[in-house]
């Protein structure tokens, strides 16, 4: 029966949806998170919330067919927040469950290839977070950064920072999704700031920065300018590597 499914927007939620589709023989033409679908135009909609037992059964079923890496891929597709993600995950899982072999490497198949392509996009965004996050030291000795990634990749990005910056307090805050991850020199904590005040560029306000911070940023900018070979200047190439939408992260691009 063709249906419109509304679910709670969590990864466990979408796995639960998959379970129900099998059990109740649903063929959804649209699966969307609740927050995105306030309209009650569709009278035939079904609401599904995450059910740990059901989602675990789907996960276990997947584990029997594909590797851990393959499941990570599905999670990345989920983090893409693309409107197509739920139907794609469903279609992908169906393919996996109905074929005899592990078809996770059959890139001739449209959903398998599409998952691969989205994973590539996500990985690139994670990589860009590793590259372009810029910490600013605050008066209370926290190295803080704000980000606004295209996809919801903060949680996928922080392991790298945890391994690297073990002897400093740091915070990376996603201002678009209004949550951050804070490292207290022992472990990572997800945090939500009450009434955070950013500058109009969504940066940390200058009055909370440590004394030397601006000077260091200017030094970095000086280094950035001095290391460029004028005779080879190539703004097209520069822009391809540092797209405009990341400039707001970078003191070397925002300091005049």
């Amino acid at each position: 029966m063709p249906t419109n499914i509304i679910y709670d927007g969590s990864f466990e939620g979408i796995l639960t949806v998959i379970f129900d589709c099998y059990e109740r023989k649903l063929e959804p033409f649209c699966i969307s998170p609740r927050s995105n679908n306030q309209s009650s135009l569709f009278s035939d909609r079904i609401e599904i919330d995450a059910d740990p037992e059901k989602s675990n059964r789907v996960l276990n079923g997947l584990f029997k067919k594909i590797s851990k890496n393959g499941i990570d891929k599905l999670y990345k597709v989920f983090c893409s927040e693309l409107p197509e993600r739920e139907l794609l995950i469903l279609e992908y899982c169906k393919k996996i469950f109905t074929s005899k072999y592990n078809i996770a490497n059959d890139f001739r198949s449209q959903p398998v290839l599409r998952v691969q392509q989205i994973v590539k996009m996500i990985n690139r965004e994670i990589h860009r977070m590793h590259a372009f996050v810029r910490f600013q030291k605050t008066k209370d000795d926290i190295y803080a950064a704000t980000i606004k990634p295209d996809f919801d990749v903060l949680a996928l990005s922080v392991d790298h920072f945890k391994k690297r910056y073990q002897d400093q307090l740091w915070l990376i805050y996603d201002i678009k999704r209004d949550y951050g991850i804070y490292y207290d020199k022992a472990e990572l904590k997800t945090v939500q700031l009450n009434n955070p005040v950013w500058t109009e560029r969504h940066q940390i306000k200058e009055e909370v920065l440590a004394e030397n911070e601006k000077r260091l940023q200017i030094m970095w900018k000086k280094y950035f300018d001095s290391t460029c070979i004028e005779e080879r200047k190539n703004m097209k190439l520069h822009l391809r590597h540092v797209p405009h939408r990341y400039w707001r992260y970078l003191p070397e691009k925002t300091i005049l």
Binding site: H160, R164, D167, Q168, K233, M235, H238
Partner: peptide
């Protein structure tokens, strides 16, 4: 609990205007 690591891949943190 020190500072830093190298991951084998390397990261470009910025690109100068010569690309």
């Amino acid at each position: 609990k020190g500072l830093g690591n190298s991951t084998g891949m390397g990261i470009c943190h910025s690109y100068s205007e010569d690309g």
